[in-house]
Design a protein around this nucleic acid. Structure first.
Lengths: 198, 198
DNA sequence: GAAAAGACTGTCAGTACTTACTGACATATG
DNA sequence: CATATGTCAGTAAGTACTGACAGTCTTTTC
């Protein structure tokens, strides 16, 4: 049950345990004692490090939230081949979403009131991706390589589809347990490419 | 803040208030006093009706969970015209998901441990739909009306796409606030029909 | 190398607050 | 009278958080 390979400092052990447990049972569903025990430490140590339970969560968020600039990520990598680029976009999407998996779980469970700014940060990536993909579709359409009557809606459709798949995958108790991500990504990209071909 | 039109019985007022608040703040994030007050009643009345907080939630679930047999719903309505049928499937999907909106929010926030059987029931519809749509694609393919190399995966893709859109719409703080459901449904169906055309 | 100092942690007892839940009694409504 | 509700006071448990003290381990210093 314990991520704490013995080399980690106490602070990190606590942060990881907190992230793990809060993602699973919600902020109000976990006690500070539980978190400390899961980290293999005493409750006292938890408070010595972070002062309050709230600050512990905030610290965990600051420490383990990955936020790259996506535009740079794509600026050089797009090769203006539809299927190839869509595959790049979707795998990148799933990579980032997976890295922020726990964060996303938490922001789904807690309401905005108690976690100021939490949502905004977990939603940054999806929004950037939508912009990028919309512009990509517009340019591809101008180049005559695809047909899009509505670039933004199509970009949204593409991303929200992967968002759905990600959500389904997020939970141990998922709705569609038989389906894995990798083949889905492949097939969905193929499908989309077919839909947009001139 | 109050749904309680004066004609409702106390029991229902409480159930609705509970549903509303738990969906918003989570089971552990709401107190019995809050629920009772929101219903315009005293806490005592709450306990007289339901005994415990747990039973209140369970009662709310039993009372407000809509679970029709989807197969019957579609048996007569499908007309074997791809675009028309996909539109029917997706609008029906969104209708049912919307009716169970609060339930789904709750089952997302709480972990399985505390709500036995909750998940299973909110996931019943999606699973039935996948079956129906898969069989539909197989039959349509046999009739030569569409091309599907992988009917189940394509059915999954279609549904999970709408699931994603539903999730995005579920929250006040959604990731893509500019996009409405109705036009999305239209466009996504058109797109899908294009992708599967022979 | 021994000793002293400092940093980190555990134990334990305890406080203050919240919250699910109860019992006794009064009130209203039909 | 019967049923449904409100008020109020109170209990028992859980939980975030604190203070005092002791132990261990590492680092510094003579």
């Amino acid at each position: 049950m314990n991520d704490s390979s013995s080399k980690m400092g106490s602070g990190d052990k606590l942060l990881l345990a907190a992230l793990h447990l809060i993602a699973e049972k919600g902020y109000n569903g976990v006690t500070t004692l539980e978190i400390a025990t899961a980290a293999g430490l005493s409750e006292k140590t938890l408070f010595r490090h972070f002062g309050t339970k709230q600050k512990l969560l905030e610290a965990a968020f600051d420490r383990y939230h990955y936020a790259e600039e996506m535009k740079k990520l794509f600026a050089e990598k797009l090769v203006w081949d539809l299927e190839r680029d869509l595959l790049l976009v979707s795998t990148t999407y799933h990579e980032i979403m997976n890295r922020n998996r726990k964060m996303i779980q938490i922001s789904l469970k807690e309401d905005e009131g108690q976690l100021p700014g939490f949502r905004a940060r977990t939603q940054k990536h999806p929004q950037q991706l939508l912009e990028i993909l919309t512009n990509y579709f517009i340019e591809m359409s101008a180049q005559g390589k695809i047909v899009t009557s509505n670039p933004e809606m199509h970009a949204f459709t593409f991303i929200i589809m992967h968002f759905g798949a990600f959500m389904n995958d997020l939970d141990a108790q998922k709705s569609y347990p038989g389906i894995n991500l990798a083949p889905f990504v492949q097939e969905s990209v193929r499908l989309f490419a077919r839909a947009l071909r001139p």
